[in-house]
Amino acid sequence: MAIVLSKESLSQFVKKYVVEAPRIAKKCLPGQFVMLRLCEDGERIPLTIADFDREKGTITLIVQEVGNTTKQMGETLSPGANILDVLGPLGQPSEIENYGTVVCVGGGIGIAPVYPIARAYKEAGNKVISILGARCRDLLIYEEEMRAVSDEVYVTTDDGSYGEKGFVTDPLKRLLSDPSVKIDRIMAIGPVIMMKNVAETSRPFGVKTIASLNTIMVDGTGMCGGCRVSVGGENRFACVDGPEFDAHLVDFKNLVQRQQMYKGQEAEEYSCGGQCKCLE
């Protein structure tokens, strides 16, 4: 049982929850996630720990309403409400070292989980360059937070309503091609298609690129094998071996395909009216 302490809308389809979970807050590290189940008939879903406060014993979840459970959260989880089950912290923490210059790429909802990682890179002494992408200005989240932990920030929107018009890969490519900038590592979290394109952009430059994979999960403990992803031709379990992997080795095509497994069964209609390509 975990109590919701606060709830806030970040954009039309994205909400931020601060949840009391002292045990998890005490242990968690950037890059880890929780599994949560709302009620007895509920599904277990994975959500990244977007922030944590060890003193207050709280964790922050940033949730995009895409289907059944995430919408139900939006509708039923007001401050004071209970979440039946919260399990964590799960997954391998991000590798944080002083690499030199790190580019953090966040797309859509992915900006939230990239934030604690960017902060940790900064604390470890890295120069942090952040690239934030969203479909439009209204869907851009966590800009302030990211600016606070970054040395440089680039923003792109698909429709040009804010920042540069285009995709996150545009400024990334410019940075990679700039002889006066030496990039040592790239961290990308966002829609699968974005992570794939980031990987393709950085591949020719040979810069180590990490992606956090959002596979479908059931238990989150390595027991079911449902979260398997092909990395370097070998199957790995995203919940225990990941969720972060070397993006240059990930079979993104298979990841996209496996995410479609229940598309026919689960409501096809997304809160974004289907315009948003965030799930692809």
Binding site: D41, G42, D219, M223, C224, G226, R228, N235, R258, Y262
Partner: peptide
């Protein structure tokens, strides 16, 4: 093995037993 429609028995049985997917859509797990 990574095609859609391929399950490890653990996942299949967990969905049905622990998550009661045989009652979908009354329960949320498909």
């Amino acid at each position: 093995e990574n095609l859609n429609g391929v399950y490890a028995a653990n996942e299949f049985l967990t969905r049905v037993n622990l998550m009661r997917a045989y009652q979908f859509p009354k329960v949320a797990t498909p």
